[in-house]
Design a protein around this nucleic acid. Structure first.
Lengths: 217, 217
DNA sequence: TTGCAATCTATACAAACGTTTAGTAGTATG
DNA sequence: CATACTACTAAACGTTTGTATAGATTGCAA
């Protein structure tokens, strides 16, 4: 289609990726390293080919001066933005929704980290998920998902309390298992509304005690 | 407002305009010429101010390495500020300092979370710290500290490799212990330079696999 | 077989580029 | 009144970076 060789296509892909991630194009040496080459010349050849075929434009003699035509309506946005996550409250401390409406706080995180819509943050209270390397005090990033995959961590509302559990399908049943043998699993019967899944855990943030940490609840 | 001065606002505007037009950011000398300045220093001051105020991010020492966070109003504001952490590379994959200079990426995190100076981010590779609830793929936030408290987690450079260990003082000796019995502890003899502590782990960020996660290394 | 294009190694060099030090002037802050 | 921040000049420094030269290797087509 483009008349590009496989190798050239890959180099172009790398250029686009780099630009998207960094906001500026790579140097020749960076490209060289990325492809494991030992000489600049290989890269120069590829760039020349790409320019000849119209995929890029270059400003000779100047660093990083590679203009890449991005596909579609993609922006040269790049720099990375922070996204504000509402901090809902403590897991096992009441309905998080209420806490969200309560407004209070938001947490800024790089949108590239989790980058979903309608995500929120909860602080973990109990140690029922220590087996899954989630400990009290951790902040979990929760995504309101319609469905859950088996084995994924979820935040569930059980008897009015929000807790972190592992979501497991056993035949026709759905079981919410803690990762700590000291706790007992919860069976989600189909019709009952005794427990509901609020969302999937997509991330964890842990802060170790120390000076200079201002964010606390 | 962003808290930018009129002059700084114009420089930022120029950066955006240049990027839109060329596809790559300008050099310092190009900015200088555009504003009719006679010294690089004026431009450097503006760029430093813009970076301090969160409008741009830079990769020190490298040409045209200015990442511009675009939409003006949508910037980091309101609740708090985001801080840019350099992503150094992988723990147990070479000297992180080199990786930082290598440039790569930065990660934006709420300054209230860890909020220190000279912090950087590493991706954990091995499972030597699973006992401390740090698993492969986790991002650790590292602070360059002069001294360490006993029992705290540190990133140490051992035989040219960066690894996460627990810092323990045993009488006159300092021992770097893994939290996984499969690995053996390392004794830091006073005079020897076989291992050095890069900094203290002040945070952990874990991302669970899923769609819509763009940030990967 | 010859020839060409693509891909790559190795080495070297000059220009481009970011950074620094030292210093000046204006303005706002407390 | 001192302190701090913005905005700039001037000159110099050291490195990054693109480019060039001289090859080698492979695959494919004339």
């Amino acid at each position: 289609m483009n008349g590009l060789t496989e190798r050239q296509r890959r180099v172009l892909e790398f250029l686009r990726d780099y630009l998207r991630r960094h906001g500026y194009p790579p140097t020749i040496r960076e490209i060289r390293t990325a492809f494991g080459l030992r000489s600049n010349r290989g890269v120069v050849d590829h760039l020349r080919a790409l320019e000849r075929k119209g995929s890029i434009r270059r400003l000779p003699g100047s660093s990083r001066a590679i203009a890449i035509s991005l596909p579609d309506g993609e922006n040269v946005d790049s720099a990375g933005k922070a996204k504000a996550y509402p901090v809902a409250g403590r897991v096992a401390a009441g309905r998080p929704e209420e806490a969200i409406e309560d407004g209070s706080e938001t947490l800024l995180l790089d949108e590239r980290l989790f980058g979903g819509k309608g995500d929120f943050v909860l602080e973990v209270k109990g140690d029922s998920m220590a087996g899954a390397h989630i400990v009290p005090g951790d902040l979990v990033v929760v995504r309101k998902t319609a469905s859950c995959e088996t084995g994924s961590l979820v935040v569930a509302l059980v008897d009015g309390e929000a807790t972190v559990k592992r979501y497991v399908r056993r035949g026709s049943r759905v079981v919410l298992e803690p990762a700590n043998p000291a706790y007992s699993p919860i069976v989600l019967s189909g019709g009952s509304a005794s427990a509901s899944v609020l969302g999937t855990v997509v991330g964890v943030i842990r802060r170790y005690p120390g000076r200079g940490r201002a964010f606390s609840r």
